[in-house]
């Protein structure tokens, strides 16, 4: 596959209190990172339903980043711990679908870690770029119309 000129699409799910604030901090500090990532804000990383991740891949994302507060720092006591427990299962499930585990990443980014956020995005974008496009919906042979309503109802 020709990966030159390939620009991966990346969705980032960020908790409001630490990681989204951290991403804002990267902006305020003018720390540059690739424009491939589009961020979706949720209140807590514990809110991130595996369906969101599947939906992102199905709609054409090549990578998904999940970021929450550092363990112990969760604004909602321990929502991030639930994400941490859910995450390996989610990776396993994605691998079952033929999605490389390198296409998903879980990171802890605090409100102060603008620099870390920018580093993570740079690194993750480069890695996904290296793996190449996913084209999952095409690969799986499912059309969006056929699977989309199902996805919205189906749970993991």
């Amino acid at each position: 596959m020709n990966q030159k000129g390939f620009e991966p699409k990346i969705i980032g799910f960020l908790c409001t209190w630490c990681s989204y604030t951290g991403a804002d901090m990267a902006g305020t500090s003018r720390m540059k990172y690739p424009s491939n990532i589009v961020i979706v804000r949720v209140m807590c990383s514990g809110r991130i339903d595996p369906t969101f991740v599947l939906k992102a891949f199905q709609d054409g994302a090549d990578g998904v980043l999940i970021a929450g507060c550092h363990p112990g720092d969760c604004h909602y006591i321990n929502g991030n711990m639930k994400t941490m427990r859910r995450y390996p299962l989610m990776v396993k499930l994605l691998e079952g679908f033929g999605i490389e585990k390198e296409r998903i990443r879980l990171e802890w980014v605090s409100a102060a870690e603008g620099e870390k956020f920018s580093t993570v995005v740079k690194d993750f974008t480069a890695k996904v770029k290296k793996i190449g496009p996913l084209n999952w919906s095409v690969q799986a042979g499912v059309s969006k119309e056929a699977s989309s309503p199902g996805l919205k109802e189906a749970r993991l």
């Binding site: 807590c44 514990g46 749970r155």
Partner: peptide
Amino acid sequence: CGTCVASCPSGVPIQYGFRD
């Protein structure tokens, strides 16, 4: 926080303002 919404096996809970 919406943790319950993300984890219900039958997808019943909703979070106002952050619906699925």
